[in-house]
């Protein structure tokens, strides 16, 4: 564990809590892509099956349980409790266009052909692109609530911090996981446009609106 990874994990946790609180407090999931949340739940489910097979640390196990529980709680709020506020008309990204390539890629490029490892690899590839339905929704409506933009920023910052963590681990532990690094870089790049608008607009107190 190093400071970059810890900060990354904290950003990840903050993102999830911000999203849950936003939906709970406003009693609405307007502007939130349920499809992205389905993909994230799938990411955690496929990645954290190792919860039953490997023990890394208490921190590791607790965080995995939190990510799993919160992702299903988010799905419950969107698709059951506050279903009436779910903006399905704007949540039209075809997730099979992400799922199918991720399945194929995880069968082609993996560390090991064991079921748990293939699920891990799939989860890494899927996480890289899981935010696309949400970004697609924002681009369709041309705007995002300030709180939604905070959520997206924290979620993007998490993987960006992991990149610094990987560089640090490469030099201090000679540890490198090529699959996670390449997917993590792609994941961060997908947020680049958003980061730019967040920093130039939201942090200056303006609304998050895409340029016309």
């Amino acid at each position: 564990m190093n400071i970059f990874r810890l900060l990354g994990d904290i950003c990840h946790l903050v993102a999830i809590i911000v999203l849950l609180l936003k939906i709970w407090k406003t009693r609405s999931c307007a502007g939130i892509s349920g499809k992205s949340q389905i993909l994230f739940a799938l990411v955690y489910t496929t990645r954290y099956v190792d919860l039953f097979f490997t023990y890394v640390s208490l921190y590791n196990s607790v965080m995995k349980v939190i990510f799993l529980a919160s992702s299903y709680a988010t799905l419950y709020l969107i698709y059951v409790k506050f279903k009436a506020t779910y903006d399905f008309n704007h949540d039209t990204f075809r997730i099979e266009f992400l799922l199918i390539p991720c399945v194929i890629l995880s069968l082609l490029i993996t560390h090991d052909y064991s079921p748990v490892e293939l699920l891990w690899t799939f989860s890494i590839y899927l996480e890289a692109v899981a935010i696309l339905p949400q970004l697609f929704m924002v681009s369709k409506t041309g705007e995002a609530e300030t709180i939604t933009s905070h959520y997206l920023f924290a979620l993007g910052a998490y993987r960006a911090l992991y990149i610094v963590n990987w560089i640090y681990r490469y030099y201090t532990e000679s540890f490198i996981d090529g699959i996670a690094v390449v997917a993590g870089i792609i994941q961060t790049i997908l947020y680049a446009d958003f980061f730019y608008l967040y920093i130039t607009k939201v942090l200056k107190g303006k609304d998050f609106k895409l340029p016309a």
């Binding site: 965080m63 532990e173 000679s174 540890f175």
Partner: peptide
């Protein structure tokens, strides 16, 4: 380089 399988990250 440690390329053994085993993921300690989240």
């Amino acid at each position: 380089l440690d390329t053994t399988v085993g993921h300690d990250e989240l």
